[in-house]
Design a protein around this nucleic acid. Structure first.
Length: 322
DNA sequence: AAAATTTGACCAAG
DNA sequence: CTTGGTCAAATTTT
């Protein structure tokens, strides 16, 4: 292999795997397309099954969820692999981190390096947000994603009319599940044709197994949509019966656009064609049918509400073009 | 009483 | 200094 660019720079890491990168980008695109198609199929098939009645709809819904969950995980793994690879190209691996709890100030500090002169590591504290892949979706129903979340913060955001709410997985403590998400309303409720819309960003993969907890799977707490600060809100406990191998109704890919948010800071534009391949990924679309997908997911137990949403004209929303 | 949310403070990144 | 992410005490809800 050779440098594809003969420049004054002698960074040998750039030789790397342009081929690998572009082929994995292609794989990602195909998988994203597959997800989109499955989602579309689901939105078509489930309503018909539900109208026909019978338990088959539930089984089919679970199977769809499993398929979508599998491909979502595969996509996430692939993206992580790509991310790891680009990191390995840029920087030596960091020394192992040590988490220390400062009891006095009740602040958790993350230290790195070898014991003696260990200092709080600035970069590590926000590393997850900046570097991890995230999945961004836009949906009128930000809370129906099949996972249980606990709100841990809310912040007003610059130039935004609505605050951003921060959630972590309910099972973070028990099962060390690192998944978090943020929810922020970006559009006012303009009536039935124009529902309030939210941007939901998921960080990290769920490693929890809600079925292992007595609460059962997939109970989602909602907030009142009039504002993100509402206390309480309606539960959707009925959703929690799902005992297949895919015990959690994993529909986190409710919709729209994946923004990998992966930053490879040291790869600048002068760093050859890699930019082309990596930017391929920054707008991989995954699921483009958010509202219908949401409706289909939850309609088995709440037909009135969900079909009302559908009847109000939320058809298939397509973002971008394939 | 337990669980969940709110809220202000702390801290890292830019 | 400003902004946004996280923590945990205080408060509210269940």
């Amino acid at each position: 292999m050779r440098h594809s660019k003969s420049s004054s720079s002698s960074s040998s890491t750039l030789v790397c795997d342009n081929d690998d990168r572009s082929s994995s980008a292609a794989v990602l695109r195909e998988m994203a397309r597959e997800q989109s198609l499955v989602t579309q199929l689901r939105a078509l098939v489930l309503p018909a099954l539900q109208l026909a009645g019978g338990e088959r709809a539930q089984v089919v819904a679970q199977m769809f969820d499993c398929i979508l969950d599998c491909s979502a995980k595969a996509i996430a793994e692939l993206k992580l692999l790509r991310l790891d690879r680009s990191r390995a190209d840029d920087a030596p691996p960091p020394p192992p981190a040590v988490v220390v709890v400062d009891d006095k100030r009740r602040v958790r500090k993350i230290f790195s390096g070898d014991g003696d002169n260990a200092k709080p590591n600035r970069q590590q504290r926000k590393r997850r947000r900046l570097a991890d892949d995230s999945v961004t979706l836009e949906t009128p129903v930000p809370h129906y994603d099949g996972h249980q979340w606990r709100k841990y913060g809310q912040k007003p955001i610059n130039n935004a009319t609505h605050p951003r709410s921060y959630y972590k997985c309910t099972y973070k403590q028990e099962q060390d599940c690192r998944a978090t998400k943020t929810v922020q309303q970006y559009r006012e409720d303009g009536g039935t044709d124009d529902p309030a819309m939210y941007t939901v960003v998921y960080y990290g993969q769920h490693t929890c197994n809600p079925a292992g907890n007595d609460a059962g799977a997939a109970v989602v707490k909602t907030e009142s949509t009039g504002g993100l600060s509402g206390g309480g809100g309606a539960d959707t406990d009925e959703l929690s019966r799902s005992d297949s191998q895919c015990s959690n109704i994993s529909v986190t890919c409710t919709s729209v656009v994946v923004h990998p948010h992966q930053r490879t800071p040291s790869i600048q534009s002068n760093n050859c064609e890699q930019l082309g391949t990596s930017s391929d990924l920054t707008n991989v679309e995954v699921n483009t049918y958010d509202q219908l997908y949401d409706v289909a997911t939850f309609s088995p137990f709440d037909l009135d509400t969900d079909w009302a949403i559908d009847a109000h004209g939320h058809g298939l929303l397509k973002y971008g073009d394939w």
